[in-house]
Amino acid sequence: MRESGTQVSRRATRRGKLSMKHPSNREFFAYWDNKRGDARAPDRSDIEPGAVRELLGDIFVLSYDGDAGYPFRVAGTRVCALLGRDLKDKSFSALFAPESRREIEEITAVVAEELLGAVAGITATSQDGSPAHLELLLLPFNTRAHTPISLTGLLAPFDNGYGVLGDFKLTSWRYLAHPPQRLVPRALRKLAIARGLMVYEGLR
């Protein structure tokens, strides 16, 4: 029997809160959280590049276009270097191996539509075949009428010596719901059929 979204969220909450491991993701999330104030998410115009200058190489912005695989609108220099190419207009979900692609598309859709942050553990393969470990943060922007929907994120490797990476796979992920945010019905429906580690921070 398939669990309801409420059952999934309760079971995940009992596993305990997990914090972001990478300091760059913690810093970017804290800045985004401060900029949103009492809103569910900040406007894109609220994010000032100069305020996160040291993180810009790892930050990207995605277009909310599921049919095109959520293409990159902007990608920092370090993100492009990790993939060995300019990522502008390239598919974000196509970076992932087939077994992870549907999940990352579902997560990206929930972040953009429900204005929930998400953090994920990722493994990748380097050019010499050795494994690489990264942490992905996805954060929404506030939606405005007549304005294309987009979201931002940060991709941070745990070692700078990996070189060019490929074949991304999700190893764990969780949403970052916290007051005044709450999981809404559409997100709960998705969680009911999602696989992987899901922990929701700040739920009451």
Score class of each variant (00 low, 15 high):
residue 62 L to P: 03
residue 32 W to H: 03
residue 105 E to Y: 08
residue 67 D to W: 04
residue 130 S to D: 04
residue 27 E to T: 10
residue 161 G to C: 10
residue 34 N to M: 14
residue 183 L to K: 11
residue 77 T to F: 09
residue 78 R to M: 07
residue 104 I to W: 00
residue 86 D to C: 02
residue 136 L to G: 06
residue 190 K to Q: 12
residue 152 T to N: 04
residue 144 R to N: 07
residue 56 L to I: 05
residue 74 V to S: 05
residue 187 A to Q: 09
residue 200 Y to M: 13
residue 4 S to F: 11
residue 27 E to P: 06
residue 139 L to W: 00
residue 173 W to Q: 08
residue 84 G to S: 07
residue 195 R to V: 07
residue 73 R to F: 00
residue 61 V to P: 01
residue 164 V to Q: 01
residue 14 R to G: 11
residue 15 R to E: 08
residue 116 L to G: 11
residue 151 L to P: 05
residue 145 A to P: 08
residue 38 D to R: 10
residue 5 G to N: 11
residue 115 L to F: 09
residue 49 P to F: 06
residue 71 P to I: 04
residue 53 R to E: 08
residue 4 S to Q: 06
residue 1 M to Q: 14
residue 6 T to C: 10
residue 109 A to F: 13
residue 44 R to S: 10
residue 187 A to L: 11
residue 62 L to W: 01
residue 149 I to M: 07
residue 166 G to C: 04
residue 203 L to C: 12
residue 94 A to P: 07
residue 37 G to K: 06
residue 94 A to F: 00
residue 2 R to N: 12
residue 126 S to N: 00
residue 140 P to D: 02
residue 168 F to C: 06
residue 184 V to F: 11
residue 57 G to H: 03
residue 5 G to P: 10
residue 174 R to E: 14
residue 9 S to C: 15
residue 8 V to Y: 05
residue 197 L to V: 15
residue 192 A to E: 08
residue 198 M to Y: 12
residue 36 R to F: 00
residue 162 Y to L: 02
residue 169 K to M: 10
residue 22 H to K: 14
residue 8 V to E: 05
residue 24 S to F: 12
residue 145 A to D: 13
residue 130 S to M: 02
residue 177 A to C: 15
residue 136 L to K: 04
residue 95 L to Q: 05
residue 59 I to S: 03
residue 89 D to C: 07
residue 23 P to D: 08
residue 47 I to C: 04
residue 4 S to D: 13
residue 143 T to Y: 10
